[in-house]
Design a protein around this nucleic acid. Sequence first.
DNA 1: GCTGATTGTCTTTTT
DNA 2: GACAATCAGC
Length: 722
Amino acid sequence: MNLNAKQYEAMTTIDQHVRIIAGAGSGKTRVVTSRIAYLIEQCHVSPHHILAITFTNKAAREMKERVEKMLPHLDSSVKISTIHSFCMRLLREDIYVLGYPRNFTVLDSDDARSVLKDAYKLMQIDVKAYSYASMLAYISGNKTAFVSPSTALNMAKFDEKEQIRAKVYEYYQKRLKEMYALDFDDLLIFAHDVLQQDESIRFKWQRRFRYIHVDEFQDVDVLQYNIIKMLCGEHTCLCVVGDPDQTIYTWRGADVSIILRFDRDFQAKTVVLNENYRSTPTILNAANAVISNNRNRIEKELYTSNPDEGKIVYYNASDEQLQPTWVAAKVAALHHDKVAYNQIAILYRSNYLSRSLEHALHEHRIPYRIYGGLRFYERMEIKDALSYLRLLLPKSDEDQHEKWKDLAIKRVINTPKRGIGAKSMEKLEAFAQANDMNMFDALLHDGIFSGKAKSEVNRFSRIIQAYQQKVDQIALDHLLESLLEEVGYIAMLQADKEIERIENIKELIEDIAHYVEEHPDGTLEEYLQEISLYTDREEIDSADCVQLMTIHAAKGLEFDHVFVYELCDGVFPSKRSMEESGKAGLEEERRLAYVAFTRARKKLYLSSSSGYSFVMDGAKLPSRFIREIPQEYLQDLMKKPKPTMARPTPTPRSQMTQQATASSEGTGRRSGGKIKKGDKVVHASFGEGVVVRVDQNIATIAFSAKYGIRKLMVNHPSLQKK
DNA sequence: GCTGATTGTCTTTTT
DNA sequence: GACAATCAGC
């Protein structure tokens, strides 16, 4: 399996708890996946007894893929998920002990905002005085620290501002409970409470997992740690992996001392991995030099025997515009030298910095993909479409009131415009409240509206009711497609020339089709629950694109060429972070820089710019982190007499080739000959069908009434000629 | 009463 | 440059 001595030791220590301190690029994911494979293959541990907790959905997906590659005969029976989705799974099974229905709703941050909006309106609070973001942070902080609204109110007795915050918190909690809705924090809190309150349930989950792995353990908070502790029974072996130098989530409650004192808490064996297999010596030495400025840290020096690939390039742009242009030109030059776009990443401190980059990349015709920012499932049109779908859910036995429907109604009742404005909504809300019902049920009652509003509302509720009847008869993707058509949502987007939004809706429908295919017996409810924790869609197209993301999002990833953009004091390190948390804030920023630098395999490019800064209210200066890199590793382009700027050469050719390869992908060969019009075919999920037409490699096939007409790739593996 | 245009405010990081 | 509150018109 090709592991070094330390890695091997980490993999094979299975009779006690282990703490793996794994420096950047030291192969920690490899060790964890190898360990899982080792447990199953060598030690004959059932995959069902193994749990792995990752930090993001993306990391979970990656780990799954790697385990499946190592053990191809096993189909993903090892549980690999984020702590949030794990807790959701636990709660879907056992939340009833807290008096909640198993089909509870999960609120995303957008829904949480809309609850706050109601609170502000009711309590006549000005958003300017209390931004939604700061209020949510306040609520989250209290919740995860187990401070109840009443305690918060008590503590705020003499502080008027605090009191208002506490009151909003109280309202928020009340509303969530009414809707049987859980926000992201609640998923952990409720799971914690279930495990703590009910011993038999706790034992049940303890028996389920014999080996638990927790990745990115340096970013675990106290609540998460307590959950993990309760999952560990007498016979459980816990294996935690992390790097204290990569703690970048203390603002969210992450506590490094948890990993630092873990060996004492659990009498664990510690294995230190400090050979780096990723980066060049130059990059590693520079990163080591920067991080050594942190005082609150345990000494750990990474080393590597990789060959060197030259100095770190640093460019300080003399004006705003030059920096993105330089980056784009450099990327174009790299691509000209046969570097694949997806081996290039541009990292930055904050999402908004991507805007200026986008512009320059676009001008240079460089394909790129931005991670983060507004994610797929957070887009307006997607949330609207899903809200329409939610309204079709059958009545639940466990939850009589279904108050969560209010959120969905508020989203879609006037989208597209039906002439239902604020005044009508007030009436509806008052009626629902007075009769203790949700707003959708209230809609079905006569006498609330009159005139135009009345007829429009009737039309709306008739359509929804009609579709509620159809849920089991039509496949989900077709159901949504035809519903959005009928309520006029698509027409609305077309009228506004919202081509991108229409595309997104199409993608969502395709996504659902994909789900239907994989789960032919899946229900609407199961689909909605499954996606409730996904913020982003699994990218199916692996097109060759430059990757743009924040440093936080880049955690755990690596690229041959890494650009770190806008390294200016105030931006990075962030002024706000330093003001809020002082020295500790600066040290976290420095760890962030350490993470950014160590993402690079071959070459690192740093850039900053001069000019006026809004954050600093003054001239921008290069980041102090640049000064912390020893001169010998840096090639400062501005210090040379004549910087060799790569010319901005547009590369339309490369784009064309890329598209050509993408579309020719489908002409694979399959046994049994080509599918043609009139052929009878069998599909793994949809059953028998007849080919109606074939366009290049897309076949239009008529299946039974439930699945209807579908377009599929002719060489799709689940499609067989009969 | 509802809709669309306009002004003003704030932009750290994520499940 | 995004978003929400505000205002003037239909």
